[in-house]
Design a protein around this nucleic acid. Structure first.
Lengths: 125, 125
DNA sequence: AACTTTTCACTACAGATGTAGTGAAATTAC
DNA sequence: GTAATTTCACTACATCTGTAGTGAAAAGTT
């Protein structure tokens, strides 16, 4: 099963859960209220929608409160988002995408070294 | 002025106009009806919305029919989309993004060579 | 048990998006 | 100049998103 579409706001919730799970709604709320400035119910709505989408699953903790955990792996979602982005903006072509980012972002020499090594491995695969 | 938000469907229209402009609505329609399977009015609606957003501007051709042309450069829009994507999925960090794509796409040895050269230039900048 | 706080199911509501349809006005073709 | 075709302004309408509010039920507190 492919990861479902996850909207921008929903993505923030997923990040919170990928970082630590399971979490109760109030726990998730607590961290996101800070970073996002969201009301309690906003987070709850997003959690509900993510459950509907099948992106997270619920369980109960010892005290009987519902908890939430990711049902999809971050890596899979990143892959899906990346592919959709590449499709939309670069018509699915990998090279222009990499050219774009390689020319438009700042990297340290170390990062450059590491990326070049990765590219070499890509060739071999 | 920054490029406005351009939705996925709208992006297809922009691509048509970036490729050739000015175009009348029916010209744009003709090409997109093929590739996208859209009804005439769908394209017209998207054109209207893009005008409202300031992404394209109108003029008239010799026969008095309205024509459409991009008001924003493709490169600028790609930059904006790229940054928004990087922000959303990689919290704005360039390296993880490049690592992700470098490890998850297929490249020819030639492309790898070219990208490595680009990376070197990045360092120097 | 009564009060307080939490949890949660429902509801709300505006703006964006995808995807057209209607019907009048303008142009083109005879 | 009448018919056919094109253009275009409006309207439509379901879904998704962002961002909550209400109010009842459950749980915790004293």
């Amino acid at each position: 099963m492919n990861p479902p579409d996850i909207s921008q706001s929903e993505w923030s919730v997923m990040e919170a859960l990928w970082e630590r799970s399971p979490q109760t709604a109030s726990e998730t709320t607590k961290s996101l209220r800070q970073t996002m400035g969201w009301a309690e119910n906003t987070v709850r709505t997003l959690l509900t929608r993510l459950v509907e989408k099948g992106a997270i699953i619920t369980a109960e903790n010892a005290s009987g409160t519902r908890t939430f955990s990711p049902a999809v792996k971050r890596e899979d979602c990143v892959l899906a988002e990346g592919q959709s982005f590449m499709q939309r903006i670069f018509r699915g072509a990998a090279k222009p995408l990499l050219v774009h980012f390689a020319s438009n972002v700042k990297l340290t020499p170390d990062e450059v070294r590491e990326l070049k090594k990765l590219l070499d491995q890509n060739t071999c695969k």
